[in-house]
Amino acid sequence: MSFAVVILKKGEGRMLKAGGAWIFDNEIAHVLGTYEDGDIVIVKDFDGFAMGRGFINRNSKIRVRMLTRNADQEIDEAFFRRRLADAWEYRKKTVDTGSCRIVFGEADFLPGMVIDKFSDVLVFQALALGMDRYKELLIRLLKEILLEDGIHIRGVYERSDAKEREKEGLKKVKGFFGDEFDTNVLIEENGVKYIVDVKDGQKTGFFLDQKYNRLAIQRLCKDARVLDCFTHTGSFALNAGIAGAKSVLGVDASDLAVEQARKNAELNGLEKSVSFLSADVFELLPELEKQGEQYDVVILDPPAFTKSRSSVKNAVKGYREINMRGMKLVKDGGYLVTCSCSHFMDYELFTKTIAQAAKSVHCRLRQVEFRTQAPDHPILWAADESYYLKFYIFQVCKEK
């Protein structure tokens, strides 16, 4: 079988040569041979040096996504089985696999594919045309691999409804991938039970990336008064409650999320100590400040305020304001938990923004720890897009 060959311009392919997985449209000199979008191609440098194989898509600015650095590697069933088996073995060594992300796109050398396991259910997103072609094969192979470990998957749901697909020339797709099943899935994480709505929940239904960050706040929350902002379905709030907090208020603008959070509180027997409010956090925090409210722990887990470089400036204002408001509501000697899930709000900028917020409200911060995403969302060096979550815990000192 012959493959089209992508020839790079002289001096291009820097990201690829540094260990990344993407080749952009403006890095390509020309393509030799015929192909259809989504086909496997061989990539060569300007001088003919073979750099590997990937799939091509003229609809996307990311013109080629690399699958292997070996230009002679066959991209067949055996290839994908090895990739999936490697991904699963890595999770077994690094995380609790009861619920976890099994495939994290480029960081697992399967660009454009995300697969999450919630108990005995799989949820996947195919975000690139080339990977969309292989989704049936990938799911079949992964189910076989899990079954070898005695894990029977009772259902698979597709959540390929992200905007990224439009950039690939793909329609959004959502629905059962095989037989229908109850899409409200019970999971347990850090001793907390949740009902995960894989059909209508955000992303794939639940944010697994904060698993160990949620665990890290438990020790701070015993006997504490806690405010959890942007609570979504209550994950940080419930970790505070299970740790023995005196009272927890979780706030989110989504009525649907708050209703699910209340159900999760009842599921854990925490409805007396953990309550939820549907409100705009930016509007609520100044009101709480006016009322003289003070908390032992304030948690800020906002959605990404920026998803592009062009909107970073506005995002900085949002992060600065929310952190200023949060610090004002922390008691002297209490704790601020603050994070950003935006790739474009990088570590240096996020850190600088928090420092500016602290200076503005005359707080001194003592860093307890800095964390990032759970190991089932591995950070592949040179693939900058795989590093997105920044998570700080600070002690807030006001009178020292």
Rank of each mutant, 00 (worst) to 15 (best):
A4T: 02
A4E: 04
K10C: 03
E12K: 11
M15L: 14
Y35K: 03
R53V: 02
K61I: 11
L67V: 10
T68P: 01
F80S: 11
R81G: 09
A87W: 05
K93H: 14
D96K: 05
S99K: 03
C100I: 00
C100H: 00
F104I: 03
G105S: 07
F109N: 08
L110D: 05
D116S: 00
K117I: 03
H152L: 13
G155R: 02
E158D: 14
A162K: 04
K163N: 15
F177M: 03
F181C: 02
F181N: 04
V185Y: 11
L186R: 14
I187Q: 12
I187L: 11
I195T: 08
V198I: 09
K203L: 12
Q210I: 02
Y212P: 02
L227S: 09
T231H: 07
T233F: 03
T233M: 01
G241E: 09
L249E: 09
V251E: 05
S254I: 01
Q260M: 15
E271V: 08
S275M: 12
S275C: 13
L284W: 00
V298I: 09
L300C: 05
S311T: 14
K313I: 05
N314F: 04
A315S: 08
V316A: 05
M324H: 10
M327F: 01
L329M: 09
K331N: 13
G333Y: 08
G333A: 07
L336C: 04
D346H: 14
Y347N: 11
S360R: 14
L365E: 11
Q367A: 12
H377N: 14
I379T: 02
Y387T: 13
Y387A: 13
E399F: 04
